Amino acid sequence: MWKGLIKTNRQKEFFKKAERIAEEACKHLTKTDREASFSYETLKVIKDVKYPSMSLAKSEGGEGLSLYELLLMQEKIAEGDGAAALSIGWHMGIMMELSQEQLWDKAAYDRLVKQVVTDQKVVNRAATEPATGSPTRGGVPETKAVKQGDQYRLNGRKSFTSMAEHLDFYIVSAYVEDKDTVGWFLIDRHQAGLSIDKTWDTLGMRGTASDDLVMNDVKVNEGDLVELKSEGKPNAKGWLLHIPACYLGIAVAARNDAIAFAKDFQPNSLNTPIAEVAHIQDKIGEMEWKLMQAHSFLYSTAKKWDEEPEQRGLMGSELAAVKLAVTNTANEVVDLAMRIAGGRGLSKKYPFEKYYRDVRAGLHNPPMDDAVIAMLAKQAISKD
């Protein structure tokens, strides 16, 4: 699957680091899936290879990962465990965006970067809330920040906080009363009043441990208000392609295991393994061309993002279309793998049922299919 995608010695070295993370994450799949937890051992390897700082610019102490390189690594990690890849992918993308877009005041940004580079600290945005749903739908946070002297007091609850218990910092969205807008606060995990409510009990992606972050009179300084909502046209966010890269990695893992199963399994009704059966070969061939298409769309778009920065502002619909196409294709590939495995694919003894549960989550990560289709339709109509 990787033939032709890895083109340079630099990419080979990065890929080896991703392989190491994937191998470690794979060791803990059963436990993290059963307990809806994230593995401390996997996070240790992530930090040991200095992955958290790699998407920062070289001048800041990182590796200056290109989007193409980030996706290579994220997809490979997802082959080992999609939940681990998706979880750390949020951190990687956020740091890439902050580094490239310079969204924050320099002092606040440098404070975070120092922690990431020196100690490989990890961060994620906490934006989703039970009442508002996905922040991409435009709901105003119920979490409120009230000004008190030179501090703010925050109260609220955030859901879907991936790696909640393992994060070193949270970037929390809140309605800022004195500014009458939505703002983002950088909060240290040790801040008084912060707690984690173990609410994560889902069908798939259980290993992201996306529990609730609860704030009860959390006091932060004015300087911790690092970002205010922009009313302008939203910037295209290439780093969000870590989402389809993750689900593509799950699909590749399912493809690999399905082929291995087909080559090994021989019922007593046949003289050969089922890999020699025509309808099984049809399914394998269908998986192959679907994955070829998905890889081509994903990585050609990433390459365009990297090599034509002047076009980035025009790539919003293209990025959204990649997410829609790749995540849906990943679901189709995993379904084919399940059909090859047959009834055994439903057994916990095999990995297929977990792939099936995990890959479904991609349909619920932003941007949602209906929003992408509506966007593409409006653009097509306005152009003609």
Rank of each mutant, 00 (worst) to 15 (best):
K237M: 09
N216W: 01
V226E: 08
L228R: 14
L248G: 04
S230A: 12
D212T: 01
G249H: 10
L228H: 10
D224Q: 14
E227W: 08
G223L: 02
L240D: 13
L228N: 14
H242L: 11
K219S: 12
I243F: 12
Y247F: 11
A245S: 07
D224P: 05
L248P: 00
W239S: 12
G238D: 05
L248M: 15
G232I: 01
W239V: 12
E227K: 13
C246Y: 00
V226I: 15
N221I: 15
Y247V: 11
P234K: 13
L228P: 09
A236V: 01
C246N: 14
G238T: 01
C246Q: 04
P244V: 05
L241S: 01
D224M: 15
A236S: 12
L225P: 09
V218T: 13
L225C: 05
G232T: 08
Y247S: 02
L240M: 14
A236K: 02
H242P: 07
L241P: 13
A236L: 13
Y247D: 06
A245R: 05
V220F: 05
P234T: 00
M215E: 02
P234N: 10
L248F: 09
K219N: 06
G238N: 13
A236R: 01
L225D: 06
A236G: 12
E231F: 12
L241G: 11
L225K: 12
V214K: 00
D217C: 03
K219C: 10
C246K: 12
I243Y: 09
A245D: 11
K229W: 15
A245V: 12
A245W: 02
L228M: 15
G223I: 04
I243Q: 04
V214S: 00
G232P: 01
V226P: 05
K233M: 04
L240A: 09
N221W: 11
K229V: 09
D212F: 01
E231I: 05
